[in-house]
Amino acid sequence: MSEPFLIGDAMTGGYGKGPDILHECTIAVDKGQIAVIVGPNGAGKSTAMKAVFGMLNVRSGAVRLGGEDITNLSPQARVGKGMAFVPQTHNIFTGMTVEENLEMGAFLRRDDISHTMEQVYDLFPILKDKRYQMAGELSGGQRQQVAVGRALMTRPQVLMLDEPTAGVSPIVMDELFDRIIEVARTGISILMVEQNARQALEIADKGYVLVQGRNRFTDTGQVLLNDPEVRKSFLGG
Rank of each mutant, 00 (worst) to 15 (best):
M104V: 12
V146P: 01
E24A: 14
L225H: 03
I113V: 15
A151P: 06
M1W: 08
L138M: 12
R150H: 03
Y208L: 07
V38P: 00
E99N: 07
I21L: 13
D205E: 13
I34S: 07
T116S: 13
S60C: 13
S46G: 07
I188D: 01
T165V: 11
T71H: 05
T154E: 07
F5S: 11
L6G: 05
D112L: 09
V58P: 02
M160L: 13
L201E: 00
E103M: 12
G54W: 04
A135E: 09
D205Y: 12
L127K: 03
G67P: 04
T26V: 09
D178L: 10
Y132H: 15
D174W: 05
L191M: 15
M192G: 02
K17W: 11
I21D: 02
A204P: 08
G42L: 06
G18A: 15
A28T: 13
Q199H: 13
F107P: 00
Q195A: 04
L201H: 00
D174F: 09
I126T: 14
T97I: 09
V211I: 08
D112F: 05
Y121A: 05
S169G: 08
S2H: 12
K81C: 10
D129Y: 12
P228H: 08
G95R: 13
I70L: 09
N41G: 02
G236Q: 01
I171T: 15
R78E: 08
I37S: 03
I21E: 02
E118W: 06
S139W: 09
V230G: 00
V36Q: 05
G18M: 14
T186N: 11
I34N: 05
V146S: 01
T12P: 03
N101S: 03
L108G: 07
A43P: 00
E229V: 14
V211T: 11
P164K: 04
G8H: 10
Q199G: 08
D20L: 07
N57A: 14
G39P: 01
H115N: 14
T218W: 00
R109G: 00
I190V: 13
R78N: 10
Q145G: 08
L138C: 06
S46R: 04
Y208E: 09
L6C: 06
L127Y: 04
R179G: 05
E99M: 12
V168E: 05
A135M: 10
V158F: 11
R78S: 06
V158A: 10
H115T: 14
L152R: 00
S139A: 09
Q119G: 11
E24H: 15
S233L: 15
V146D: 02
I203E: 09
G39W: 03
G207S: 04
K31L: 10
K17G: 15
T116P: 07
M49A: 11
A151W: 04
N196R: 10
I37A: 07
I37R: 02
G18L: 15
V193S: 01
D122Q: 15
F107T: 01
I27C: 03
G42K: 06
K17L: 13
Q133H: 15
M192K: 03
L102H: 02
A147S: 10
G13S: 03
E182P: 06
A62P: 12
R155Y: 10
E229F: 10
I113Q: 07
Q199A: 15
L138Q: 07
A84V: 04
H23C: 03
V86L: 01
L191H: 10
P125I: 07
V209H: 00
L235F: 01
V168F: 04
H90M: 13
